[in-house]
């Protein structure tokens, strides 16, 4: 028992030291914490899973039961120097409030932009069994055509003629012509100053609006394509649309 008691704190100590090294953006002496929070919306209003009724640009009414996507390779840029979070893979799941924010330590600095990948990079798609946010338990990994679903929406609409009026967009594909990965960069506006202070906490609030999935540049009508469950042309069209879903709403230096 005593050995167990001794091992436990030792284990945690090792684990946390390991994590700190992984987030090697931060030099231990000169770092603060950056928290990134995602707010998932439809036309600016927070998503109401299952209960909300929404209308897309083609006057098709639908509801949303699942909305989740991967954010990876989060990188902050200061005067042209990139500070990259190591092992940066985050599953943002509207159904799991704990997943909507993540924090990591970052070197004290003033930053002008943030970039991230919407999806999971190709290497991780071909590197075998993963854990944490990349665990296949999260229902974001295809079992018959190996690879991650980068973003997923499920819901219902009377305009869908498939079983139970399902609407399902499982968007994935990481190689060649099927690649749906989107590297997105956002410059902070003049009134959004991200200043990481020593031992301080700053927060970036990012809005993800589902309404963008339906158009610009590609019109996606439920009546025509209620289901997308494989990599390919349709997935690419939807991904082109959803690459516009993010807006930096606010930057707060607490």
């Amino acid at each position: 028992m005593i050995t167990k008691l001794l091992i436990l704190p030792l284990f945690f100590a090792v684990t946390f030291t390991g994590n700190k090294q992984q987030n090697s953006m931060a030099a231990a002496d000169h770092s603060g914490t950056l928290k990134i929070t995602f707010i998932n919306t439809v036309k600016g209003e927070p998503i109401q899973l299952n209960t909300g009724n929404y209308t897309n640009p083609f006057a098709e009414v639908y509801s949303i039961s699942k909305f989740k996507y991967y954010i990876s390779d989060v990188t902050l840029s200061s005067s042209g120097i990139n500070f990259r979070q190591q092992e940066s893979y985050h599953l943002i799941d509207e159904n799991n409030s704990a997943s909507l924010s993540f924090s990591f330590s970052l070197t004290t600095n003033t930053y002008q932009s943030i970039s991230f990948l919407l999806g999971v990079d190709s290497i991780k798609n071909v590197s075998g069994a993963q854990t944490g946010d990349l665990d296949p338990l999260n229902d974001m990994f295809w079992t018959w055509n190996s690879g991650y679903i980068m973003a997923k929406m499920e819901g219902k609409s009377l305009q869908s003629k498939v079983v139970n009026n399902k609407v399902e967009f499982h968007i994935g594909g990481f190689s060649g012509t099927h690649n749906v990965l989107k590297k997105l960069q956002f410059n902070f506006s003049a009134n959004q100053i991200l200043q990481i202070k020593k031992d301080g906490l700053s927060e970036i609030i990012i809005q993800a609006d589902f309404d963008t999935w339906w158009q610009n540049p590609n019109d996606i009508r439920i009546a025509e394509t209620p289901i997308c469950s494989v990599p390919g042309a349709l997935a690419k069209k939807i991904a082109d649309n959803y690459s516009n879903m993010f807006t930096i709403k606010n930057v707060i230096n607490h």
Binding site: N125, S127, A129, P136, T143, W144, N145
Partner: peptide, 25 residues
Amino acid sequence: GGINHIEVQPLGPLTSVIEMAETLD
């Protein structure tokens, strides 16, 4: 050739409703 790594192969038969029909959970 749909499976790109030996480690993720069992996910297919394990979750297939016509094979082992289980869930990972």
